[in-house]
Design a protein around this nucleic acid. Structure first.
Length: 492
RNA sequence: GGUCUCGUGGCCGAGUGGCUAGGCAGAGCUCUGCAAAAGCUUGUACAGCGGUUCGAAUCCGCUCGAGACCUCCA
């Protein structure tokens, strides 16, 4: 595709992307509720948006990427007596709710850093935007979209539904929902079970509470995103994203709040990322069917036979499209790991091609690069991009025997473009040769000396010596590969 | 029960009304002191049954199966 197209889950259509303000993109993504460790399913979503963020920047957009942290208001369930997730954790561990928030916010950031995700432009918290949330409630009350009941404020779905369609994002009919919902008569302040809380009056034992015109209480979960997205991106912005599971009710409620307070729906494009499953079932904190990033990195899990790097996991995740369900398994990780390593070693082979042989080659790097762009323009199709990278790997491998394919110019350009796609867009780092450049250079120099010694031994047919060097290095995690044009190494 | 999505070769996973996805694994060959790596070649695929069409894995219908949401979750 020539131009970027994005699948909009509100209209269920692939739409050409046109930003509201030329050259700028406003993107809001629902972040984590920091009451627990993030698991790999959460990570998948944020990595999907990380690639989207990176690609939009690559296209030249100035992107304002807002990803919130939910630190209040997310209740265990939707009945009136539901408790705040963070408060429950605080009570269980006998600490302040804000200690819970602090601990898991730091944990979340550590994980994001480990997976090489770029930080968002703004990372606002719900508790930091109570005034904005209260202002929205005031507006909704004045215009009649909300009502107060015993110190709590609820959004009036029936009133809203007269001129709007609550449920259009998730494809639901209000009557069906009513039919299937629990009967709350007599035990709720709500007029209808479909109504959702904008402000909740705190019960006597509730720790997290703030003053408001209606009661000492706390905001409803859905409100923060409306408040923060409109504050930082305006009433209409380009992209709103989140996991599929947030479609209903969270994003549905957000749309209702947005229309109620500003007349606008919020985002022009809704992007929903699909679930990461484990054993065919969705990863979920509540059912404990999860795999934590630290378990992946240490290999300490019943689901794994060995540890995997963050890079391998990233590669695995981006090998599937963000809108597809992806099933996590040790086998799948293992094959991703092998493929990824092969890609890296092919890329590293290019260094040799940039200095020797013909100047020009027959392979059209520019055309190849266009096809990578085309893949990403088609709703951020990272699996197709990766397939392209493997095409390039094949070309590089062939070229090491026939230097007329790439040529020096082609090799230099291809190296640049491969780095662009692998590092800048997919966020993969070249862990194979160490993290710092100093380390990389030093190791390479040391290996040259080892190769020299070994070459001498091999020329004298001293196989005992050359093999023992190779075996000892293998024990240390360094694999030697002897080729026609010299030796090379990789780190496992 | 309601709403929706999906069902691709041994496994993972793109795509699409007629043109090789790709990765991993398997087989054969080449290279090679051995090894590793790499290259080349190679295979049974689009759940089943009908329909639309010159042509469908791709569109429509039905059946079977799986999953998600409908209560908190990215």
């Amino acid at each position: 595709m020539e131009k970027l197209h994005i699948y909009d889950s509100l209209s269920s259509k692939l739409k050409p992307f046109v930003s509201i303000e030329k050259g700028k993109v406003g993107m809001y993504v629902c972040g984590p509720t920091v009451y627990n460790d993030v698991h790999l399913g959460n990570v998948r979503t944020f990595l999907s948006f990380d690639v989207i963020f990176r690609y939009l920047k690559y296209l030249g957009y100035k992107v304002r990427y807002v990803r919130n942290i939910t630190d209040v208001g997310h209740l265990i369930d939707d009945i009136d007596e539901g408790e705040d997730k963070i408060a429950v954790k605080a009570k269980a561990e006998n600490i302040e709710p804000m200690e819970v928030v602090q601990r898991y916010s730091i944990g979340f950031h550590d994980v994001m850093r480990a997976f090489n995700a770029l930080p968002p432009s703004i990372e606002p918290t719900a508790t930091g935007h109570l005034i904005e949330q209260i202002e929205i409630i005031k507006k909704l009350l004045i215009s009649g979209w909300a009502y107060e009941s015993n110190g709590s404020v609820y959004f009036d779905i029936f009133n809203y539904n007269k001129n709007n369609s609550y449920g259009e994002l998730s494809g639901r009919d209000i009557n069906d929902m009513l039919h299937g919902s629990r009967d709350l008569s007599g035990q709720s302040d709500k007029k209808s079970p479909l109504d959702f809380a904008l402000w909740k009056k705190a019960s006597s034992g509730h720790i997290m509470r703030w003053p408001s015109p209606w009661s000492n209480g706390f905001p409803g979960w859905h409100l923060e995103c409306s408040a923060m997205s409109s504050k930082y991106l305006g009433d209409s912005f380009d992209i709103h994203g989140g996991g599929m599971d947030l479609k209903f009710p969270h994003h549905e409620c957000e749309i209702a709040q947005n229309i109620g307070s500003s007349g606008k729906k919020g985002a022009n494009n809704w992007i929903h990322t699909n679930m990461l499953t484990l054993n065919g079932k969705r990863m979920s904190k509540s059912t404990e069917n999860t795999l934590l990033p630290r378990e992946l990195l240490s290999g300490d899990s019943e689901h794994l036979t060995r540890p995997y790097t963050a890079n391998t996991a990233r590669f695995f995740i981006h090998q599937a499209h963000y809108r597809s369900i992806l099933d996590f398994s040790d086998d799948a990780l293992q094959s991703a790991d092998k493929g990824y390593k092969r890609l890296i070693s092919s890329r590293n082979l290019l260094e040799k091609r940039t200095k020797n042989g013909a100047k020009k080659g027959s392979f059209d790097v520019v055309k190849w690069h266009k096809s990578c762009e085309s893949a990403m323009n088609n709703d951020f199709n990272s699996p197709q991009l990766i397939a392209n990278l493997f095409e390039a790997a094949k070309v590089i491998q062939n070229d090491s025997k026939d230097s007329g394919i790439l040529g020096q110019d082609g090799a230099i350009l291809l190296a640049e473009k491969m780095d662009l796609w692998m590092h800048d867009i997919l966020g993969l780092t070249n862990e194979n040769v160490g993290d710092s450049n100093n380390y990389k250079t030093a190791l390479k120099a040391a290996m040259e000396i080892v190769f020299e010694t070994r070459k001498n031994a091999r020329e004298k047919k001293d196989w005992t010596k050359s093999d023992s060097i190779r075996e000892k290095l293998l024990d240390a995690g360094i694999t030697i590969k002897d080729g026609a044009d010299g030796s090379d190494f990789s780190i496992s």
